[in-house]
Simulated scan of single mutants.
Amino acid sequence: MKSLIVSGLVSVLVALGLAGCAGNRLSDTDRLALYQAHAGAPVKQIRYMEPIGWDRIDDQHLVLQMRPQESWLLRLMAPCLNTGSGSPFLGVSSFNGMTLTRFDKVVVPGGHISCMIDEIRPLDVKALRAAETMLREKPHASGT
């Protein structure tokens, strides 16, 4: 079994890049709807390599970024991504170390349980970024 921990600095940078301005931050519910609208059909497995970042959407969903233009929306079997410990790290446990499938696990260090992956969906990163930009600019456009 292979476990990887994504560095805290990369995680923070990715989270900031995906979240944009803090003043216009979307709610978890709105962010999940946005990600789901730009996600493809579920896949059985993906080629697994060291992720360059991750972003928590809510206690049951996260985005795993493998390359700058390759991200995946993961839904976990149960809400268990409680990052109340403030840990900027995420562990991913792949059964064979070469692919990531349903039933592989995600764990936040310091947490007492691991979260089994229920679904993996590819994200259209370019369309997602364009939609996020449009949503953030919308309040500014109406105020002028």
Rank of each mutant, 00 (worst) to 15 (best):
R129I: 06
L73P: 03
K126C: 06
L4A: 11
M66L: 15
T83C: 09
L74Q: 00
L62P: 01
Q60M: 05
V10D: 15
Q69L: 10
E137A: 10
L128A: 04
I52H: 02
M116S: 14
R75I: 03
E132I: 08
I52G: 07
L34M: 06
A15T: 13
V14A: 10
A130T: 09
G86I: 02
G91K: 09
A127K: 15
P122T: 02
V107M: 12
P88R: 07
E132K: 13
S3Y: 11
V14W: 06
K105E: 15
L34F: 08
E137W: 09
A41Q: 14
H38N: 08
P51S: 01
Q45T: 09
A141L: 15
R136D: 09
D58Q: 00
A15V: 05
L128V: 04
M1F: 12
G23C: 10
M1W: 13
F89T: 04
D124R: 09
A131K: 12
M77W: 09
N82F: 08
R121W: 01
L64A: 05
V43I: 12
S87L: 00
I5P: 02
S27G: 05
V10Q: 15
L81W: 02
S94T: 09
S142M: 12
L81R: 01
S71I: 03
E50I: 08
L73A: 05
K105S: 13
E137S: 10
V43F: 03
A22E: 14
W72T: 05
S3A: 13
G110R: 04
L62I: 01
L81F: 01
E137Q: 15
G86Y: 02
Q45S: 12
P79R: 06
V12R: 15
T29N: 10
R47Q: 12
G91Q: 15
S7E: 13
I117C: 02
C115P: 01
P51R: 05
P42S: 14
M77K: 15
V125K: 07
G86T: 06
M98S: 14
Q60N: 01
R102E: 13
A131T: 04
T101P: 02
L123T: 06
D30A: 13
V107I: 14
A15W: 09
V108W: 00
W54Q: 00
I57Y: 03
G23M: 09
G91I: 06
L135N: 09
L62M: 05
I117Q: 02
Q65L: 14
P139L: 05
Q60H: 01
G143S: 14
E50Y: 14
W54D: 02
G97M: 01
D58K: 00
E70M: 07
E119F: 06
E137M: 12
G8R: 07
V14H: 10
G111Y: 04
I57G: 00
P88G: 02
V14D: 07
N24E: 14
P42Y: 06
A19S: 13
L100R: 02
E119R: 11
P79K: 03
P139Y: 03
G17K: 07
R31Q: 10
S87Y: 01
L32M: 01
V106K: 00
S3I: 13
D28A: 13
L81C: 04
H61F: 07
V43R: 13
R75G: 05
V108L: 12
Q36T: 08
G20C: 04
